[in-house]
Design a protein around this nucleic acid. Structure first.
Lengths: 152, 152
DNA sequence: ATCAATGTGGGAATAAGTGGGAATTAGTGG
DNA sequence: CCACTAATTCCCACTTATTCCCACATTGAT
């Protein structure tokens, strides 16, 4: 399970360094083979170890390609999905369309979210965190049963 | 179970010393491996022994990432979650975003709260204690069934 | 007052992250 | 099918950050 945010740089060859604390687990999970695609709610990317991604592919596969909305979801998620293998110095290559979707420039945030990572531009991530804290504190969040069950 | 408040200092390398009275228990619980994240209601931090945190992660994992509110909560809690291992001289490192959230300066309070700790800036903690006592005394607190069941 | 234990500060060693040259591979056109 | 170009991958060197370790200060007990 991945957690925590790391500030990393997207270098001139469009690579990001995976923080060493994650490498061992990633190598055990998937020998460094990962899949990166766009997020559909935010300007960020989702990065999965290959086995996790394959489960998502199965779900996408079961959607109906006759339903326009479901088909669109398949097109967006699968169409942007890019195989990324961690190279021998622990770096991942992020291709052009993905960089564009997340507005990635030099300063990038890699955010552990349990079974996957999110990749954000530094600015967008900070904005998202501010929005999150203020929404929760101001009570704009509807407390579903699942949320009430959380005792922190 | 942890209880009591300790006044400690955040040093120039952003470390806090865990009071010795807790170390033995913490070492037994989690070999000093802990997780620190933000509190969503107050400007303070929550510090869990790793096994306790993992239970929370399980609950967070069962939230739906398609629901924007539940996803936001995941992002805030997991994104800020930071692995903190007690070092060989009994200290923990507090990273920048966390320090910022709790407005930590030199004087810090470590507050035992049963299965976890809270970390407050000295000022904010004192304000919180005053507010707490006065609200309870003035009867501004709604007495739910669970509270009525408390006999002190 | 002295000693022991805890907490604090900071120098030095180690490791991690970054940038970019060089070698290899893949792609394109003649 | 070969030659040329472009892109990718590897590897080394540098810088920055983290961790370890030792020494000093403070507290509380004998």
């Amino acid at each position: 399970m991945f957690r925590g945010t790391s500030a990393i740089t997207l270098d001139s060859k469009n690579r990001i360094t995976v923080p060493t604390k994650y490498r061992e687990e990633l190598f055990a999970d998937c020998q460094g083979k990962m899949v990166c695609t766009v997020d559909i709610q935010h300007p960020c990317l989702l990065l999965y170890p290959l086995p996790e991604w394959e489960e998502i592919e199965l779900k996408l596969c079961s959607l109906s390609s006759m339903n326009p909305q479901e088909r669109l979801l398949q097109q967006v998620l699968l169409g942007n999905a890019s195989d990324c293998e961690i190279d021998k110095s622990g770096r991942l290559l992020i291709n052009g369309p993905l960089r564009l979707h997340a507005n990635l420039e030099k300063s990038v945030m890699l955010v552990g979210q349990l079974k996957k990572f999110e990749i954000w531009s530094e600015n967008a991530w900070q904005a998202q965190m501010q929005k999150g804290i203020s929404q929760i504190q101001s009570g704009e969040i509807e407390l579903t049963d699942r949320l009430l069950d959380l005792s922190l």
